[in-house]
Amino acid sequence: MYNQVFANTTNNVENIVTTVTVKHFYTKSIDTSGWLKVKLDPSNKFAFLCDYTKVIIQKVENDRTYFLIKEGRYANNIASLSNKNAIKCLIDCSRGTGATLTVTNLKRKKEISIIRKQELNQLFADLSFNGNKARITIDSDVDYVETNPLSPYYRQILHSKPLPNGTYNILAPFTAGDKESTDYYRADPNGYKALAYDTVWFPIEYAPTYNSNFVHVGNLSEGCITCYEIQKWNDLYQYLISNRSDSDGKYVGKLIIG
């Protein structure tokens, strides 16, 4: 299946160092969820990796392909896929060196979403990315319950506010978002049937909110960069997920507001 050997080797000749080239592969979800389900070794517990996570093939044994996860929350763990799925989901490709999102033309306006069917006091803006543009909201002026357990305000009711003008790092996805928060953007009669990857949320690095702001799809923003123009999300997702701006794969790029 794979025409290279990836096992570690040693050299028994004293004072001679041998350089071994290690080839990286990248994960690709088998569906349009954006998450690849793998089995961790030796625990046999399941884990989910976002697309374009870097891995190194270790061995093919008993109809399974074993690989070392190089980045993300499961970095340095060995995982496996069936050989059939490994051929489809461990791909030989390259990633971009960093995405750039630019937010401009901020304007507050009350509007009723045709999908959420509620009037919200939206702070709309234009999001430019990879030669494209999408309408976004960066604040919906709403109360919400803080769901980030890292925040000292966990489970408290807060009021939304937009991120200040500035430049921010965008992190690679860590865990899947709540499907119930986005599925109706596809299922609703006024929704976008081709919407995909809607549970993939990209955290924005911002210490005052303990990274509780995200780039995601939807019509409601609790201070997130929310892709209000649902039809543009698939392209925005593909641009972000296919980029990493650092050697550790921690960041997909940067966000510039103002």
Score class of each variant (00 low, 15 high):
D246L: 06
R186P: 05
S160M: 07
N213T: 13
I114D: 15
T182D: 03
C89V: 04
I57P: 00
L106C: 14
G177T: 06
T18A: 14
S43M: 01
P173E: 02
C93Y: 03
I87M: 12
E222H: 14
I114H: 13
K28F: 01
L236W: 05
N213V: 08
K54Q: 12
S242I: 09
N148G: 01
S221C: 03
R135C: 10
L195K: 03
P162G: 05
Y251H: 11
L90S: 03
A172H: 08
N219R: 08
I225L: 12
R116N: 15
F124P: 04
A172E: 09
K254A: 04
L68S: 14
K39F: 04
N148D: 04
G253D: 01
N85P: 03
T97P: 08
K45Y: 15
L158S: 06
N85M: 11
N62M: 07
N15A: 15
Y26S: 02
A7E: 10
A194D: 15
T53A: 09
Y210P: 04
V103M: 04
V215H: 00
K110T: 12
G223C: 05
N234P: 00
K70G: 15
K161V: 08
Y192T: 10
Y251N: 10
A79R: 00
A86R: 00
P149K: 05
K133M: 13
I170M: 01
I204F: 00
G98V: 02
N12T: 12
L123K: 06
F6S: 15
D41C: 13
P162R: 09
T104E: 07
F214P: 06
